[in-house]
């Protein structure tokens, strides 16, 4: 049974339909990534699922129970990490965590112990007594993440968890998400970083203009856009790849072959290919194969292919950058 389920979920603001009949399920222990450009409806979907926005139509279910219109009853089941760190500036790290624990009815002893444990786990113990306002962006994100799991929720909603933080902090946060998931937490995350979705998510949903255009595992999505199988051969020494390609073409006329740089060539085929005859052919021609690998399209290519949204443009939009500026 799905732990989170959205059925025909719709959100309208007057004439504007922000989320349009969205359907998806998130199974227990899974990480589902919601990938889409700015204004696609990612945050609105999270808000509807968590009770920060009223559902116009459709339903929200947790563990098979319909909580539409009474999400207060389900809020103990999940933690929410918003796209901006929203803890209290005037409280220190420890106080912030304790306060968030109290909001979920944790006893004083329990929340204090848990706060200490999380501060240790997130490498923030040294900053526990410092006010939140003095934290760096990365530290703020980590503490916000800790606050989201203070009450040990089985479900975690994360809205753009690594936006605006430096590379090291982003890596640290991704590791933490991975570890939480390994320990059984089901994660629903929105992101505009395709590589993040690729690295973290078991399944990905593409959302554009309020509608889910595709949901699937990475391999399912890739299979959909992959028109042909591509095999890339790399050789131990430099060869005349043009001559080798010609000879290869004569021997295996069913396949298209393209010379690469001086020590590689690629074989394209509309059907599955068997590797052994090719390796044998190269050996006969005195060329030793160093590596043979199947080239798959990246999730970015899949995303662009399916949604028609340019990935780089999406990334820049979110970061508010001008063309030519680099990512942190």
């Amino acid at each position: 049974m799905a732990l989170i389920e959205a059925v025909e979920l719709t959100k309208k603001y007057g004439d504007l339909t922000a989320v349009d009949r969205v359907n998806f399920k998130v199974r227990q222990g899974e990480i589902l990534g919601f990938l889409g450009p700015n204004g696609a409806g990612k945050t609105t979907t999270i808000n509807m699922l968590t009770g920060l926005a009223a559902v116009t139509s459709g339903s929200v279910r947790y563990d098979g129970v319909d909580y539409t219109g009474r999400l207060k009853k389900a809020q103990h089941l999940f933690g929410v990490i918003p796209d901006e760190s929203n803890l209290y500036d005037e409280l220190n790290g420890f106080e912030n965590l304790c306060f968030c624990g109290a909001l979920y009815g944790m006893t004083k002893a329990d929340r204090r112990e848990r706060a200490r444990e999380l501060l240790e786990r997130f490498d923030l113990a040294g900053a526990a007594d410092r006010p939140f306002r003095s934290y760096s962006k990365g530290m703020k994100r980590k503490l916000t993440l800790a606050a989201g799991i203070i009450h040990r929720p089985p479900i975690l909603f994360m809205d753009e968890p690594t936006t605006g933080v430096d590379v090291d902090s982003a890596r640290g946060i991704r590791d933490l998400i991975g570890r939480l998931n390994k320990n059984g937490t089901t994660v629903f995350l929105t992101t505009h970083y395709i590589e993040e979705a690729e690295r973290l998510c078991h399944r990905v949903a593409f959302i554009v203009s309020g509608r889910i255009v595709r949901v699937g595992t990475l391999s399912e999505l890739m299979r959909e856009v992959q028109q042909e199988n591509i095999l890339l051969f790399t050789f131990e020494k430099n060869v005349d790849s043009k001559e080798l390609s010609k000879a290869f073409g004569k021997r295996f006329s069913r396949y298209s072959v393209y010379p690469g740089n001086r020590n590689s060539l690629s074989v394209h085929s509309g059907e599955a290919v068997e590797l052994t005859p090719f390796v044998k052919f190269f050996e006969e021609n005195g060329v030793k194969v160093y590596e043979a690998k199947i080239i798959r399209p990246s999730l970015e290519e899949v995303f662009v292919n399916i949604t028609g949204v340019a990935a780089e443009q999406m990334r820049r939009e979110k970061e508010g950058k001008k063309p030519g500026e680099k990512r942190p």
Partner: peptide, 15 residues
């Protein structure tokens, strides 16, 4: 403004 009020709205406490 700081969106910390959202934390309260997300807590399993009646309005």
């Amino acid at each position: 403004r700081g969106r910390s009020f959202d934390r309260l709205l997300l807590a399993p406490v009646s309005l």
